[in-house]
Design a protein around this nucleic acid. Structure first.
Lengths: 331, 331
DNA sequence: TATAGATAGTTAATCGTTTACCGTTAACCA
DNA sequence: TGGTTAACGGTAAACGATTAACTATCTATA
């Protein structure tokens, strides 16, 4: 059976309070060095493992952070890794919740407070946060939103993909592209997608008509398939700006399969700056998100709010910058 | 403040027991339909959210599974996604613990029982499991090991990469490679790495000397850098079998950068079968692990042991098969 | 000598559930 | 009418920690 502080207390003829004070390592308590050592030793001998569930029940802290994301794509993995690096030194664990995978994510968000996590990091999940907040007006769980969608309330670390998108389109035009298309997925009708707005603005500004190619999901296979399908029915656009790198890579593959040359026939620019883009035979131009800085700030905000729930919410918007590589470099 | 069953009970002038019986949805209890409805309604009205921590303390179940992994590479993301798909319908959450990221993973494994998870899935982490078991002989936490390293004790879903490696080397030789090298990382001196053994065997069988190129980590940047460094000092091998696809892609990139042609100058075969391999301009040959089947079985084993801790441990070894693509196809 | 303060340790309530066990009621039957 | 039983609901003890408040002892100081 599990060894508890009571067992240790009994063995040493002490009270559980004393044992707890030693084991939870609070310096303030008055415990003699002799008892301290005895308790520590006995705990080790008996193979005592604190029960974090019991502790959490009384302290109200679980040392667990929940990450809300939309399918664990490579971009998300990088975020996960970076966040973990930040949190670990502070003793927090990360529990990943993939909202897309939930058959009923709305209900899940509404009932989320049942998991007593110490905080939530919502990556590109503004809708989830909204549902969560609305259903739990009296719950004060620290939440920081991060990602490319603008969030009005609470702590927020955003990426300004709007100007990144504009930059990307202008770059394509300068490279001689006559009509850049936007390859996008159909989440939420593009509402709140700054890339969409940026693309549309930049294209219109150049006196051109926008051309949207819409795929079901933002995944590689989906983009690849959609691209094939599109090219079966339409002439090939000479430039492609993509919702994310996943889709860019999917499209790139489809073009390869059709013998269409990149960048000569089609110049491609992606979004996110995932590591994969650098490792293609023809590295992919992309609007790089400052993920490191973003994760650093997200954790900083969350950690601060955990320590002091009443601090004023903070919002930052980080710049994303176009990195030009071979996939859109001509001449 | 948080709404508890006590609040509901007080409001309805019932006992907490009754409320609990309704809310925890056990059918066996005798509760009239009228009270049931009243409780349900009041709970909804008051915005009641069960406290899983409190529940876990008494039931001993948290509905949380811990995944132990080594840095969240693309291969791991796929595993994570697949496992989640399995577990979600059963109401389990996944908490990912990246052992490599822990400054002191040994201590962490030893103290792991403090997290009252319902089970552990250890992906390519045989050493962690060993440390965990040894430090906690009396703890009966369900563990299933999965991955390419053979584990003798407990439930285990393995991949036979040995024969996969042999197959890969033989394929390279048939494609006309004179001296295939093995690009590997230096975890644990290759002990227990079936690819290493398979490679070595196959090369020796062909009357050749093995050639190992050892990088620090199994990551892309690391493999790329190591490859450059190697080629600065040595002639280029004409074939490359790699520890995993990450390293293969890293090496591939290094070769591209040096103007060395794949597969004409060097034929490459990777390991794992991650999605990225399909999306290169020249898709990568790779020894594909049956990840789907592996995850399905891992969850099946774990779930069974959670329900019935005394079932006999089960061990399976799945075959991995070489998929030949452009990176090693000649002529 | 009286008093205050520092030190060491104890008592018991508490966190929010679950659940084994018990009591009451009412229907049913012989 | 007395007894059996099923249905419904309550009591209270867990689960394993933390912690406020308290007691007891010792030391130092006036």
């Amino acid at each position: 059976m599990r060894v508890t502080i009571r067992d240790i207390a009994k063995r040493l003829d002490l009270s559980t309070a004393t044992v707890s004070k030693v084991l939870s390592g609070r310096e303030s308590a008055f415990i003699s060095e002799a008892t301290r050592q005895k308790v520590l030793e006995t705990a080790r001998e008996m193979g005592y493992r604190p029960n974090r569930v019991a502790r959490a029940l009384v302290t109200g802290k679980t040392d667990i952070i929940s990450l809300w994301a939309q399918t664990l794509a490579p971009y998300h993995s990088e975020v996960v890794n970076l966040l973990m690096d930040q949190m670990r030194p502070h003793g927090f664990e990360l529990i990943i919740t993939d909202m897309v995978k939930h058959p009923d994510w709305r209900a899940y968000c509404e009932k989320f407070p049942q998991w007593q996590v110490d905080g939530i990091i919502a990556l590109d999940s503004p809708e989830c946060v909204r549902v969560f907040r609305q259903a739990n007006p009296h719950v004060h769980m620290p939440v920081v939103s991060m990602g490319a969608y603008y969030v009005e309330e609470g702590d927020f670390v955003g990426i300004d993909l709007y100007s990144g998108a504009v930059e990307a389109v202008q770059h394509l035009l300068q490279a001689g592209v006559k009509r850049p298309a936007y390859l996008v997925c159909n989440y939420g009708n593009h509402v709140g997608d700054p890339r969409y707005d940026g693309y549309t603005f930049a294209v219109r500004q150049a006196g051109l008509e926008p051309l949207y190619i819409v795929a079901e999901h933002s995944s590689r296979p989906c983009a690849r398939e959609r691209m094939h399908q599109y090219l079966d029915e339409h002439p090939c656009p000479d430039g492609l700006f993509c919702f994310n790198d996943e889709m860019a890579i999917g499209a790139y593959r489809a073009l390869c399969e059709r013998g269409i040359r990149v960048p000569d026939d089609v110049a491609i620019v992606g979004c996110d700056g995932i590591m994969d883009t650098e490792y293609l035979e023809r590295p992919l131009s992309t609007v790089v998100q400052p993920v490191g800085e973003m994760c650093r700030l997200a954790w900083e905000f969350l950690h601060r709010r955990i320590e002091n729930p009443s601090v004023a919410p903070q919002q930052v918007l980080l710049k994303a910058h176009l990195v030009v590589r071979d996939s859109s470099r001509r001449g």
